[in-house]
Design a protein around this nucleic acid. Structure first.
Lengths: 158, 158
DNA sequence: CAAATTCACTTGCATTTTGCAAGTACTTTG
DNA sequence: CAAAGTACTTGCAAAATGCAAGTGAATTTG
């Protein structure tokens, strides 16, 4: 082994073909990818806040550390949840975007939002615009999210 | 401090009233409770497999360790997701069951199952009966789950 | 009714994963 | 061409996890 970050395990992060999954259960396998405090926050930023850049993820209020963000982006890439390209106008920047797999997480995040709003008192106004939109017009909300993502793709993906 | 398990932090596990949450975001606050590889597996066992006892959770194929299970049950208790009683026929056993908060996680778990089935190749037949039921009759599936839980409650809760 | 077993944990300890601060290397900007 | 921006990596301390081995109360067995 020449050089290895502490975060890269030899056996790759997700779905070892040889059978590193803990069980054949869908929930358990999802947790092998998303079961930590940071991964879904990155997905949230991509889905609900239209973020696409490393630096934008760093700006989220939870304050993810650079090493964790870097690691999570790698895992999401290798799990096929996101993909990346270089910024067309700036070679030193990268753009991350959701694959269809990633976009398919919208219903999961949506139900998490609903549960959180109803059961977590510490969730405050900051998310209310999204909640309101979600409650008044659930279908339209999802459509709008996907439309926004598609618009970004038209602009940045060849 | 007299004696403290490594798993008990002084500041309680979930939702510090003083504001230990990372941000006012619902997703982030949910992850403070459920963001690890084990907690949702316990909830899964309670919801989909009708499990109610410590020993039953230990038998799940993922093989949770006793210290982790003990810790997660405590956290779920203090988050108000589950409650416990002593087994009426056996004082040395405890019975754990979902509160309304816990039962409200069904839509979240359901969407995770759907995503997992469509996007995780390693998910095998073991879960197929549940998937089939879910796909053919989503509403009925949820109703059945809740009916089963209610039946258990009628039997064991005063 | 003493001994073994069950049950729900706790404890100790090695390993792994985090969190934080400080680099590094390559643009891009002024 | 020096300063600033971008996407990382590295080192190290602290926390969480995984495993094996208790512990103590209650229940069952011989």
């Amino acid at each position: 082994m020449t050089k290895k970050s502490k975060f890269e395990s030899e056996k790759e992060a997700v779905c070892p073909p040889g059978g590193g999954s803990r069980s054949p259960c869908a929930i358990s396998n999802m947790l092998d990818i998303f079961g930590d405090k940071w991964t879904l926050l990155v997905v949230r930023d991509l889905i609900f806040y239209g973020k696409h850049e490393y630096k934008e993820f760093l700006e989220s209020p939870e304050g993810i550390a650079t090493n964790i963000l870097s690691d999570r982006l790698k895992r999401l890439l290798s799990a096929g949840v996101i993909a990346e390209i270089r910024h067309p106008q700036n070679r030193s920047r990268k753009l991350y975007y959701l694959t269809s797999r990633g976009k398919a997480l919208l219903p999961v995040l949506k139900e998490m939002l609903v549960w959180g709003e109803q059961h977590l008192p510490e969730v405050t106004d900051v998310m209310r615009p999204i909640f309101a939109r979600l409650r008044n017009d659930e279908k339209g909300f999802a459509r709008e999210i996907l439309t926004n993502l598609a618009a970004w793709e038209r602009q940045y993906l060849s």
